[in-house]
Design a protein around this nucleic acid. Structure first.
Lengths: 141, 141
DNA sequence: CTTTGTGCAAACGATTTGCAGGATG
DNA sequence: CATCCTGCAAATCGTTTGCACAAAG
């Protein structure tokens, strides 16, 4: 997941996106973390030391990145969208205690047989959402 | 899923909820459909002929029903919560074309082996979200 | 009668939008 | 230099809240 500055610039250009400091830093930020941050979390992270971007720009950057397939939206939280730069298929674990969302590698489960679906449904992908408690949230070990 | 008026009243009472026309109709409405409506869709459905409930009451009814485990929230749509009176474990199919959400019976897939999860994660449930096109949305047959 | 629910309107939080000025290719 | 992006503030949308009145058990 880690990429050099130059690589990120190339990736953005290759997708037809203009490279601006804001867009670059949103994408670089998402690439550097695996915690599926919200737009607001990315913003405060970027602006920690000195202002880098505004709220409106974060949203428009995320939308642009999403449109070219570099970022995906994760819908596992009530009321807020979370974002993920890992666009390869994978599953998610959501901790009922702290709400943390963690990736589960695609090959953790054996492939599901989508042929068992009701006739008429044409499936293209799927994703498993597991719920439970993470290391930090369950009592004893 | 179909229940008589009396049964619904009993169900609500059994869960410790006062039976009001509003609460009753929200639950009855959810029981009668399988399309995972939004709060707004339930509201306009109920108020179709004459006013039955207000917006604030729909939300508070849904919350009460959720708290006693008669209704669950479904997070598969951007920006809106959908609701489901089917609280037994099951999976979901979401049509990329029209956004329709349909239930997939629990036994459609064989059970996943949660023992394969990263050490430290304590799983309690999971759910599969399948994406694709429904009957109405895919081109030829 | 005591408790809890309802409706209204105002309040909220996340996200979007309009627009003028600024940066990118 | 034409196009696209940014920042600001206002606007929007789903959902929540405060409060006075009404209904449920």
């Amino acid at each position: 997941m880690q990429q050099q500055v130059g690589e990120i610039v190339q990736t953005l250009k290759a997708r037809g996106l203009r490279v601006t400091p804001q867009r670059f830093s949103v994408y670089a930020n998402l690439l550097s973390r695996t915690d599926h941050p919200t737009a607001e979390q990315i913003l405060s992270d970027l602006n920690q030391d000195f202002p880098v971007s505004s709220q409106a720009t974060i949203y428009s950057s995320l939308q642009a990145l999403r449109e070219v397939g570099l970022v995906r939206e994760v819908l596992l939280d009530e009321g807020v969208s979370r974002y993920d730069a890992n666009v390869a298929p994978h599953h998610h674990f959501r901790c009922d205690g702290c709400g943390a969302i963690e990736d589960i590698p695609w090959n953790t489960f054996q492939g599901l047989d989508l042929g068992q679906l009701r006739l008429g449904l044409q499936a293209t992908t799927y994703e498993v959402a597991v719920q439970g408690l993470c290391d930090l949230c369950h009592p004893r070990d």
